[in-house]
Design a protein around this nucleic acid. Sequence first.
RNA 1: GCCCCCAUCGUCUAGUGGCCUAGGACACCACCCUUUCAAGGUGGCGGCACGGGUUCGAAUCCCGUUGGGGGUGCCA
Length: 469
Amino acid sequence: MTGPRYRFAPSPTGFFHVGGARTALWNWALARREGGTFVLRIEDTDEARNRPEWTQGIIDALAWIGIHADDPHFEGPYFQSHYAEQHVAAAQRLHAAGAAYYCDMTAADIEARNKADGTQGYQGWSRDRGLGPGEGRVLRFRVPEGSTVVHDQVRGEVTFDNATIEDFVLLRGNGSPMFLLANVVDDLSMGITHVVRAEEHLPNTPKQQMIWQALGHQPPTWAHVPVLVNEQRKKLSKRRDKVALEMYRDEGYLAAAMVNYLMTLGWTPKGGSEIADWANMEADFRLSDVNLSPAFFDLKKLAAFNGEYIRAMSPGAFLDAARPWLTATDAPYPVDRFDETVFLAMAPHIQPRCVTLADAPGLVDFLFQPEVAIDSEAWAKATGTADAVAVFRAASSAYEGLTEWNADALKAALEAAGEAHGLKLGKAQAPVRVAVTGRTVGPPLFESLECLGRDETLRRMRAAGALLA
RNA sequence: GCCCCCAUCGUCUAGUGGCCUAGGACACCACCCUUUCAAGGUGGCGGCACGGGUUCGAAUCCCGUUGGGGGUGCCA
């Protein structure tokens, strides 16, 4: 595969951050449309972040949002920890070339020196001491004079005065490489041409660009996209906010809705509608159209997208998507009583009432429960007047004699019973609904009764009628 | 503190000097539809942070102020 090489470089943390998902999606759209490659690199050099199952979690999460490892545009995963030797070798080259030097000052030394001098940060104190490598000595990059200009695809030119950048650490005192170095060396050896990542990396960029240049290469094309924030306008964090993509998946959000919503955070699909399919978004996405300010990750809007996608599904697709919830052991009915044919018949009435797939079982529970628990408050309210009771009795006997058991006939019979007592359908249906479903609210009643079936409906109505005696 | 980024309805955004009396979506409110609840339809509320320039003309360009965010590790 020729063409541009984008990369996505998450560090394994045990969950997949929604902000990372958006970055991955943007990289993916670009790599695919431009006939390039999406390189996945797991940045696992921090010892504490190194668990094999976390990597699998990343692969699974990517697959969920449509970034499949078997797609020809996908490459990886690579593991940063496997390339430590290359990182160290590059550091040694920088040292040999005079672009880096060793320093034996500890954090405490630096603090003391700052206090004495009234300065802040590391002031290049070991630059000319000619120290060689040794236990406890870090290798620092010798930041040159002048300024560094970063050409950014979304932000334009960003200039940094090198005097404001301290001589940063390349190799730790124990000889292990730091992120800044490892990241550059990997990007370089993996032939990365485009780095599209979150804005929090912008301050790192001049440093990385200097490393690229010191290593004798042209830096890649940079693009720093805005971060996602919470209602307090702070960067979404795992401590405060619900950031795990897996959590949304488990709560019944559809991948397509999530992908669509994430794509619109900082960018708008062409054509006037925010609801867009992947093919169109992939074709239209441009970094130059990305908004520059942080975007609020709005659960309410996500929910609206999800509802939109659920309503657009065929009943069959809806059943397939909701099956894990419909047949879960904690469903509000015995799982073995769940009937797909019955559910399919009700699906068109359930879909407009679902925000997430997890809402489905609660809307059809009465169809699969052997016995419904009648909410006493609801029942009291629905049968609170003499007319209501009379209508319920009239409807019960009408239903007993019904020859055709379908929604139209059920509706007509109840309507007739209601009219005899001056009750409109809205009032007249209430006792029947409570008697059969246990609640005052739910999917359309007559369709529900049709699906429930004659025998069970009549049985429940008789049982409820007995409560009136 | 220092460095960097950003600034259109509550939120996500359209807008790239005249098409802007600033458009859409979500949220909210009202009404309609109606078999409860949804969905759907119609309408409403609501914004160019502020101050200076540049220009015949500025939401759009420049400067400043204010506000917000990010970074500032021998984390990534």
